[in-house]
Design a binder for these strands. Sequence first.
DNA 1: CGCTTTACTGGTAGCGCTCCCACTTTTATG
DNA 2: CATAAAAGTGGGAGCGCTACCAGTAAAGCG
Lengths: 354, 354
Amino acid sequence: MPKKGSGAKNKKRSMATIYDVAAHAKVSKTTVSRVVNGEASVSIETRARVHRAIKALHYIPNKAARSLASQAEVRIGLLYNNPSVAYFSELLIGALEGSGRNGAQLVVDKCDVGNPVIARKAALDLVKTGLNGMLLTAPLSGSAELIRELTEEGVSIVGLATGRFRSDISCVGIDDYLAAYEMTGYLIGLGHRRIGFVKGHPNHTSSQQRFLGFKAALRDAGAGIAPSVVVQGFNSYRSGLDAADALFESRGKVTAVFASNDEMASAVLSVAHRKGMVVPQDLSIVGFDDTVASSTWPMLTTVRQPISEIAAKAIETIVKNCRLMRAGTRVKPQNFLISHSLVLRESAAAPPPG
Amino acid sequence: MPKKGSGAKNKKRSMATIYDVAAHAKVSKTTVSRVVNGEASVSIETRARVHRAIKALHYIPNKAARSLASQAEVRIGLLYNNPSVAYFSELLIGALEGSGRNGAQLVVDKCDVGNPVIARKAALDLVKTGLNGMLLTAPLSGSAELIRELTEEGVSIVGLATGRFRSDISCVGIDDYLAAYEMTGYLIGLGHRRIGFVKGHPNHTSSQQRFLGFKAALRDAGAGIAPSVVVQGFNSYRSGLDAADALFESRGKVTAVFASNDEMASAVLSVAHRKGMVVPQDLSIVGFDDTVASSTWPMLTTVRQPISEIAAKAIETIVKNCRLMRAGTRVKPQNFLISHSLVLRESAAAPPPG
DNA sequence: CGCTTTACTGGTAGCGCTCCCACTTTTATG
DNA sequence: CATAAAAGTGGGAGCGCTACCAGTAAAGCG
């Protein structure tokens, strides 16, 4: 029979505070605070004692009090548009995780990110709400004007997956150029000589980088590579459908298609099926992002972009920059490169012998 | 040339506080607080004056201070598993929006929700983190034991889309039974007499309700309806592929397939294409949830479940309950029904004349 | 051995807000 | 007209924490 209510600790109702810990460890709350915040100047024994008390009391610092006292509440805005639900979902998870870890607060808002006027207004409105930082996704991250305005307002901004790094703001993302280069190389290695390419949304800098990487790989492969068939897409499934139609109607028969994102790749897949092609025997299809990859049949070979990780890193950077700015330090843009990887699944294989 | 820096207000650096507003409106901060919190006992004129001051100063209450002072910080946990990215993404957006509006803090964590042991441990660990509330999605929301444990810990819980309402916890969701009934009725109305059904994950109570609704509609349609072909799915795309294979291999030819979620419906669609069937001419396919619906070709006819809205409502309920509990009030479970709708797109039509 | 330096530690003052308890008016009631 | 009850308002005490400024003791230095 478990004894109830007799234990030393009370269950809920008011968690332990820093005072309780201080009393338990027989130090001042200041010292506890120092230990919790990992400051150096605390002796080993004291530190250990405090840690023990924290554990014993199940102490968890009160975030509200912390951000109030340190004047360090960081609110980070994020505008979205449902570019690709899967993409956004991963982004959100990463951002949320990063916010939790860094004690920031995420404020998300929906708007038509594609329309510069609307997006700009939405961003500025969001900022008026009392934002300290802002996570800029494409195509917002490409607008120099918006960036300037936001910076003037004193908002820390970080661009997400901007394709190429830049000097005006901090960015975190993968090397789209290199990734596309590698994927194209893989296709060429498989034996493909005529490859179709579905370009991503023209507003996104990363799209350009992906295309550039593709072209570079083709060029570097030298002779024997037929001129590629390139069609424009706009990152949506819908646009992928149209792109695929255009691609298959073109005179030059391709044996592989490289779509700038998974959404479009899965659209191409769907159209190929409809036309009676068997993937990957008749046609190889690869995507980019690894967002819908395993929800297709066959499963998509693609470039994995660790979106959550990127988002988390971006949040961390924003928080750090905010704190620096508050301390009066001038922050200079910093770029972080996250590594990507090729995920080889079932949708790509050697071209048909014919 | 716009005059800069000459305006009355300073840009960033320390937002206006309640004191500033009080001074501006010539009232006490207490009164401002009352206005901001919409309390009754403030005269109309005072209220108006305060509102004017708030607007003039661009005052935004400091959340940290608020939750600290009111002891009202509400932290809400959410366990996820990537059941369906699209579903989760919508859920997250709604939850985030609800949290923002209600001043709560969302803590999301990933775990294998499908495994009862792991999920239970993860939930309890999360709670130890200092949670006040928890959003329970299927299949967690079906575990009476977990619910009891959580309740004992003093955590406010709300079940999401539990299919059927219950008396032990508050729930918010749509009427899965009715929705499935209606969708089935639509198919029958189109002329289908032999309909295949892909069941959802057996752990999810909503799956059962959907199946029950399907059967009821068949029964109510009376004679002339061939016995249905029912196969088991597990909500994933992958399982939908298997289910579709099983369905098409069965002796009784169906003219329509009703899948318990969109993910599986799109898998069925894919298999149908592969088998050379034209949708919806040869076969009608409908789904449930409206999560991937427009990323398929043809676009899926489905039941729209407003997941964001449901999640937001759930968060609101949790926050409300937390505050009530803190005030010492005993809260009794409350169920909220959100309305669904049939979204008729392109994947369902009358059966072939044959 | 006296002095400064360095390592630790504690006390106190808020951060911006809400809550409780007054206090001053009005308005209703006997 | 006195008295009670509202109705509206203000003051102060914290919420739990960090920042800052002192302390105290040990160590370094000439």
